[in-house]
Design a protein around this nucleic acid. Structure first.
Length: 311
DNA sequence: AATCGAGCCAACCGCGGTTCC
DNA sequence: TGGAACCGCGGTTGGCTCGAT
């Protein structure tokens, strides 16, 4: 059965509502009450689809709607209710006075979902994930980037940006632990062995590593920021050949440029930055001290994305 | 100052369930 | 009883805003 359209799409107005239209709709509903949405536009004198009127009323004009930021209590309640009911937004909305299903859905997708992912919690099952290591994340990133059909519910909930953020956190954690334990990373191979990635992924790790640390002063910037443009294919091909990645005398990494194409635009200012080798931090006694010294907030790069690496 | 890109959110779309005749 | 109309839901889109370059 093919259902007839609820209104004449060619003549009916779409898009944002004007204050005049809002007033007309509000006035009509205050007078006659909501309902019979199909006939409402004609009776109220609005050139809108009934469906559009209903949505505008329920999501925006209704007098009992609470606007503004969600409180911590509301957020906790949403997470709890979502763990019980899943994406049943209307059901969740009934438990939050003044909030609409649309508003909760949007808030979930833009804030809570991301927050849970960053905490290593699966936003679909609400279970802690223990397999969010870098190799797995790289595999997921590759799948996402190639548009593969992902059936795993957790992976299907991930976006490239999420994977990138998770991977960055993983990398930071691994490095901090290595540093706090006194490890001295001398080349990209030692980094890869710590991260437990295979040869094909090594190039990606080094690129990620560069992107994370090239703006910090941990490694000598002039060895990281060299202006080369190597395609991903070239990078992969080069991994099969014999690699020879030197290490500078101060202990900082020196990437073989054919394996680790820089992803950050270079500038004279970058080149002039003072350099501090990793060995400076190698005798730090604990993780928090290392974290403090590294000033992790400087390493957060919100614009970082896997697409940059994979493309 | 102009441009670009990411995040946000209001609004739309399509579908399924319910009601009405 | 079955088809048409209606309503509500969840997923998706597109335009606006704002910060970075």
């Amino acid at each position: 059965m093919v259902r007839a359209p609820c209104c004449d799409e060619a003549t009916v107005k779409k898009g944002p509502w004007t204050t005049e239209e809002d007033e007309i709709l509000k006035e009509y509903i205050e007078k006659h009450g909501p309902g019979n949405w199909r006939n409402l536009p004609k009776k109220a004198g609005l050139n809108r689809c009934g469906k559009s009127c209903r949505l505008r009323w329920t999501n925006y004009l209704r007098p009992d709607i609470k606007r503004g930021k969600f409180t911590d209590d509301e957020e906790s309640l949403i997470i709890h209710l979502h763990s019980l009911h899943g994406n049943k937004w209307s059901m969740i909305a009934t438990k939050l006075a003044g909030r609409t299903d649309n508003e909760i859905k949007n808030y979930w997708n833009t804030h809570i979902r991301k927050k849970l992912l960053m905490m290593g919690i699966d936003p679909v099952t609400h279970h802690k994930r223990t397999d969010l290591n870098l190799p797995n994340l790289i595999t997921v990133a590759n799948g996402l980037n190639l548009g593969n059909n992902i059936t795993n519910p957790f992976e299907s909930a991930l976006r490239l940006q999420d994977v990138a953020n998770l991977a960055r956190m993983q990398l930071n954690n691994v490095l901090l632990q290595a540093i706090s334990q006194g490890a001295l990373l001398t080349n990209v191979d030692s980094l890869s062995s710590i991260l437990d990635v295979n040869a094909l992924q090594t190039g990606l790790v080094s690129s990620l590593f560069q992107r994370n640390f090239s703006n910090s002063n941990i490694f000598s910037s002039n060895t990281l920021n060299q202006g080369f443009d190597v395609s991903y294919e070239d990078q992969i091909c080069s991994l099969g050949s014999d690699r020879n990645i030197p290490c500078s005398t101060d202990g900082s990494l020196v990437f073989n440029t054919s394996e680790a194409p820089p992803l950050v635009a270079t500038s004279p200012e970058d080149m002039a930055q003072p350099t501090v080798s990793l060995s400076t931090y190698s005798n730090l006694s604990n993780l928090s001290e290392a974290s403090e010294q590294l000033n992790l907030s400087n390493l957060v790069d919100e614009n970082f994305g896997w697409k940059d690496i994979l493309e």
